[in-house]
Amino acid sequence: MKPIATTRSATGIPTGKLAVWWLIASEIVIFGGLLGSYIMHRLGHPEFGGYASHTNTVAGAINTFVLLTSSLTAVLAHHAAEQKDGEKAFKYLWFTIAGAATFVIVKSFEWHHEIEQGYTVTANMFWSFYYCAAGLHGLHVIAGAIMMAIVSFRARAGKELQQVELVGLYWHFVDLVWIFLFPLLYIAK
């Protein structure tokens, strides 16, 4: 049983959801610091444009498509959870996890190819930022997939259905970060 404290809601926002909003706020500043540092260097160093021309826009676009689609399935899982349909939420959450897996697989092929060509993390500042930012984001993708897997089994058992929305919020945030990473690393050349 949860403490009484957990069941109270003075703000009107459920406690778990409130915590996720704070989590997202603290993640915004983590990614903000990294991307801000990158943009400063990008604007101060015209040569980054030349380096960036070697990123694989097609892979980036595929991954954008994958993440946008997984965001759709995440919100559909939330919708199912609201209808108290744990079974359906479970199904959609696993679609989302499949999206996360696809993302990571595409990413690993992409990185493999780039590293083979000599564009390693130490090649120059652009590639350092590239691997650092995409890597940090990739860790969030993996963490999100693990959390969704945990929540999905609870949802199928009809327990803690509100967590489907919480993990979905986190997933949308991961998607949002990628929405900005994609133009920063792939399109602006």
């Binding site: 983590i30 990614f31 903000g32 610091g33 540092s37 940090l136």
Partner: peptide, 13 residues
Amino acid sequence: MASVGPLIAGAVM
């Protein structure tokens, strides 16, 4: 929470 984010990014760097 609001200030430590950039330093976490910095720590990774």
